[in-house]
C-alpha cells in the first residue's frame, strides 16, 4: 500500500492509504472529526451526519467519503460547526434527553460533541415522543428515550455477536429500535452483558445495571477533557466499568 497520497485537513497535510475514508485517515493522524454513529470497529454508516466536512466545495460525511489525493477538507469553519450544532440540536429535540437525570451524563458522546460544537440550548421545539424503558434484562437496561438511531448496537449484535438482537422498525420520524424476542423485551432475547452490543452505545440508551453513579459526576470521561482529546466513549468502556 502506498502512503505517499495526501490531502489537506484544515490546512494540515494528512496522508492516507488506498481505501481509506477521510475519517480513517484523520483518526490515524490523531485529528478529531466530530462524529456519533461512527466507530472504527464497524462498517461506516453515515447516518448522524455530524462528521460532515466540506471537500472542494461539496459537503460529504467524512466517515463514508473516500479520501482523495490533493483535496482540501474543511473540518472547522464556522459554517461546518454551525451545521453540526444544528444537527445535534435536532437529535436533542427528537428524543427525551434529560441530562441531569441521566446516568451517562459526563460520559455521553452526544453531550460531549454538543459541548465541542458550542451548543448552548436545544433551540428547536421539543418533540417529547412517548417512549419506554425496558428493564426486563437482569444486567442491562434500555432507555429508548435516549436512542439516537446510530445503529451501533444493531451492527455489533449482527456483525460481532452474530445474534441479531436489535433491528430498526418504522420509517421516517417513526423509526425506532426494536429487540428481537418473542415479547420484544430484552430479557427474553439472547442478549448478554458480555456482548459487544452492550458496549457500543454512544449515549445513555443501553446501560449496565447495578453500577449507578459508581464514578461521581465531575470525574467522568468528558468532565476533565473534551471529546476531541479523549475520543469515543466506546473506546473507554473498560476503564468506565472498573
Amino acid at each position: 500500500m502506498s502512503t505517499s497520497k495526501t490531502f489537506k485537513l484544515d490546512g494540515k497535510t494528512i496522508s492516507f492509504n488506498d481505501g481509506d475514508t477521510i475519517m480513517d485517515a484523520a483518526l490515524r493522524a490523531g485529528e478529531y472529526i466530530p462524529h456519533l454513529c461512527h466507530n472504527p470497529e464497524f462498517t461506516p454508516h453515515g447516518s448522524c451526519r455530524v462528521c460532515i466536512v466540506d471537500v472542494n466545495g461539496r459537503q460529504v460525511s467524512a466517515c463514508t467519503q473516500p479520501a482523495m489525493a490533493g483535496s482540501e477538507v474543511d473540518n472547522a469553519s464556522d459554517n461546518i460547526m454551525r451545521q453540526r450544532r444544528e444537527l445535534l440540536q435536532m437529535l436533542f429535540v427528537e428524543g427525551n434527553h434529560i441530562c441531569p437525570a441521566c446516568e451517562k451524563s459526563g460520559a455521553c458522546q452526544l453531550q460531549a460533541v454538543a459541548y465541542y460544537t458550542n451548543m448552548l440550548s436545544p433551540h428547536f421545539t421539543h418533540f417529547f415522543p412517548r417512549r419506554t424503558v425496558d428493564a426486563s434484562h437482569p444486567d442491562t437496561a434500555i432507555d429508548f428515550d435516549r436512542c439516537i438511531l446510530c445503529e451501533l448496537c444493531v451492527r455489533a449484535s449482527r456483525d460481532v455477536d452474530h445474534k441479531n438482537v436489535f433491528a430498526i422498525d418504522g420509517r421516517g420520524i417513526n423509526s425506532h429500535l426494536v429487540v428481537n424476542s418473542p415479547t420484544g423485551k430484552l430479557g427474553d432475547s439472547s442478549f448478554a452483558a458480555s456482548d459487544k452490543a452492550a458496549h457500543v452505545c454512544p449515549v445513555g440508551a443501553i446501560l449496565p445495571k447495578h453500577t449507578g453513579y459508581d464514578k461521581p459526576i465531575g470525574d467522568r470521561l468528558y468532565d476533565r477533557q473534551p471529546v476531541s482529546i479523549v475520543g469515543d466513549v466506546a473506546a473507554h468502556e473498560q476503564e468506565q466499568e472498573h
Binding site: S47, C48, R49, R171, G172
Partner: peptide, 11 residues
C-alpha cells in the same frame, strides 16, 4: 416518505 435514516431529513 422520509426513510428516517439520516438526522437532517428525519428530523
Amino acid at each position: 416518505e422520509s426513510c428516517g435514516f439520516c438526522t437532517p431529513c428525519r428530523v
